[in-house]
């Protein structure tokens, strides 16, 4: 019925590829964050033409399943590179690895989601804070960096944490393009003896632990940042 020996033997093998899951999520989150800051600035400053275009792209990414996005990048990226070659830009489309495809797709996905969170965190900072900063003689840029951004970061962390956890969970789909992470390993091991439920439970435990650890890390960092920014903790 349930082969617990098999489940226990498989556990370390699946755990061994967990770094790939974490690696993909972190890289995508970092690139996504950088892009998201850019997007948020473009949209908040209502940059001519660029702002509505970026808005549509964000809506598109947020309205489509990540697995579909992954395949669009999987099939689209090589074609894009070939097109660039024709324009005279030296690119080599033959060498695109699955990792590059995954990082591209997941970074774009993260960028769209994080940009929305940055904007809502920005809006939740009291505008009077900015006015007060200007009124004591700060330049607008300095007021932004010294007064608004620290408060914004404190507001952003809970949402950023949720997006990051979703990223970890979403990487369970990259086995489709041949990357061996937790889900892929679970599939590979179980296909030998058709003992699916054993390895899936292993994967479940590993995912829950990873997500729990990162959620805690974000919680702790939120407390620290709130103490530094507001000298207080958010009361939950």
């Amino acid at each position: 019925m349930f082969d617990s020996n098999f489940a226990i033997q498989s556990f370390p093998k699946i755990l061994a590829v967990a770094p790939m899951t974490i690696y993909l999520s972190i890289i995508a989150a970092i690139i996504g964050l950088v892009l998201a800051i850019l997007i948020a600035v473009i949209r908040e400053r209502k940059v001519f033409v660029l702002s509505p275009i970026v808005g549509i792209i964000v809506s598109f990414i947020r309205g489509t399943p990540i697995i579909v996005q992954m395949y669009v990048v999987y099939y689209g990226l090589p074609q894009l590179l070939i097109a660039l070659q024709r324009w005279g830009i030296n690119t080599d489309s033959s060498g695109i690895s699955a990792i590059i495809v995954a990082i591209t797709a997941y970074s774009l996905n993260a960028a769209a989601n994080i940009s929305e969170s940055i904007r809502s965190a920005y809006h939740s900072v009291d505008y009077k804070q900015y006015e007060a900063a200007i009124s004591v003689g700060m330049t607008p840029l300095r007021a932004m960096i010294r007064i608004i951004v620290p408060q914004l970061i404190a507001n952003l962390i809970p949402n950023f944490s949720n997006i990051f956890i979703d990223l970890i969970k979403d990487t369970a789909l990259v086995y489709n393009i041949g990357i061996v992470e937790i889900m892929a390993k679970a599939n590979i091991i179980s296909s030998v003896g058709f003992k699916y439920i054993e390895t899936y439970l292993d994967a479940l435990i590993i995912y829950i632990i990873i997500c729990w650890i990162f959620a805690k890390l974000f919680q702790i960092s939120e407390v620290i940042i709130r103490q530094r920014v507001f000298a207080t903790q958010r009361i939950n």
Binding site: I168, D170, M183, L201, L204, I209, W212
Partner: peptide
Amino acid sequence: VRGTPPLLMLLL
């Protein structure tokens, strides 16, 4: 549930 990928939830 927070820590479970939806894909895994379906498989389980």
